[in-house]
């Protein structure tokens, strides 16, 4: 099923919005002057009466989303992930999460590949921020079909959901019949020497890393954990208790995010050598996509090198 998709993830987002909009009449979309970037413009065109423009005022948009959810609607307040997680955090925390309202929050333009906009627009802290709030569920899709499955699951799950949407095309790892379940990971490749745990588009990088490792004679198990909160503790424990060491890979800061969610499970039940791949404690600068992944040591080769390091630690 692995093939290079030429469809950008934001276009898949728009396709899923149309599908959901057709299935749920009470689903509505709220925008903060970014609908042509996020591609929600397609939803606006199809369902103009269900599209609300809030201008450049994210705090108000998320507050209004809470009000609309109180009245029984399922709002998608949409903006870039940086603004959702930073500018409107208080509203998301108290008006939405504390009240446990049925609001679905897409965080667009996540992580490293976000255009050349620089630090202000590359969301690296959203996983850590969102993960720290009670009641909310968090998912980071590996590919377009994963994103669509996550959005369908979000509609079937009462309560607040935050899901990440990358801007660019990602390698398709799943079929169109792919299902997403909260708190369930997926073993994409079995192995014995090390577990590579990926979320979001980094799962594809883990698969590439496993091929590099195979050339060096190492057998890597690759697990995709699209559901970051709740995270599949059992799947993690089962794999790392077999391999004895692990790498986590996320398209975000390594502080407080996906890697730490894995570490919490591992340190509770099955401590092993583990290294986290992701953005180190620094902001992302303007630059090209590939060169940024290289600069931040998040390429498949970096994952493979980190894997060899933990395998060696294990052997000592």
């Amino acid at each position: 099923m692995e093939e290079n998709s030429s469809i950008e993830m934001r276009d898949a987002f728009a396709e899923a919005l149309l599908e959901i909009g057709g299935n749920y009449e009470n689903m509505i979309f709220l925008d903060a002057d970014l609908h042509t970037s996020t591609k929600a413009s397609m939803f606006k065109k199809r369902y103009p009466e269900r599209f609300y423009q809030f201008g450049i005022a994210e705090q108000n948009m998320f507050g209004a989303a809470a009000g609309l959810a109180i009245e029984g609607f399922i709002p998608f307040p949409s903006t870039f992930a940086v603004f959702a997680s930073r500018r409107a955090l208080d509203q998301i925390s108290i008006s939405i999460c504390y009240a446990n309202l049925n609001v679905k929050i897409p965080g667009s333009y996540v992580g490293v590949p976000t255009s050349r906009a620089g630090a202000s627009h590359n969301s690296i802290e959203d996983i850590a921020i969102m993960r720290s709030m009670p009641n909310i569920k968090i998912a980071d899709p590996a590919s377009n079909n994963d994103l669509k499955a996550i959005m369908r699951a979000a509609m079937e799950t009462p309560g607040p959901v935050y899901f990440r949407v990358a801007r660019y095309a990602a390698k398709e790892l799943f079929g169109s019949d792919h299902k997403f379940t909260w708190g369930k990971g997926k073993v994409l490749k079995e192995g014995l020497d090390v577990t590579l745990l990926g979320t979001g588009i980094m799962t594809a990088f883990c698969l590439e890393a496993s091929e590099l490792l195979a050339r060096d004679g190492f057998s890597a198990e690759v697990v995709h954990l699209g559901s970051i909160k709740p995270v599949d503790r059992q799947c993690i424990i089962d794999s790392v208790s077999k391999t004895g060491c692990a790498i986590t890979a996320e398209n975000a800061s390594v502080i407080g995010g996906f890697g730490d969610a894995v570490l919490e499970a591992v340190s509770d039940e099955c401590p092993v050598y583990l290294k986290k791949i992701g953005v180190r404690d620094r902001f992302i600068e303007s630059g090209g996509m590939d060169e940024l992944f290289t600069l931040h040591q998040m390429q498949p080769v970096d994952i493979a090198n980190a894997a060899i390091a933990v395998i060696n630690s294990k052997k000592k």
Partner: peptide
């Protein structure tokens, strides 16, 4: 009708409810 505490947020929620009605 809503959860609150941090100041300045209730009018947005109210506007959302009014829009919902």
């Amino acid at each position: 009708e809503a959860s609150g505490g941090p100041l300045g947020m209730g009018l947005s929620v109210s506007a959302g409810i009014a829009l919902g009605l």
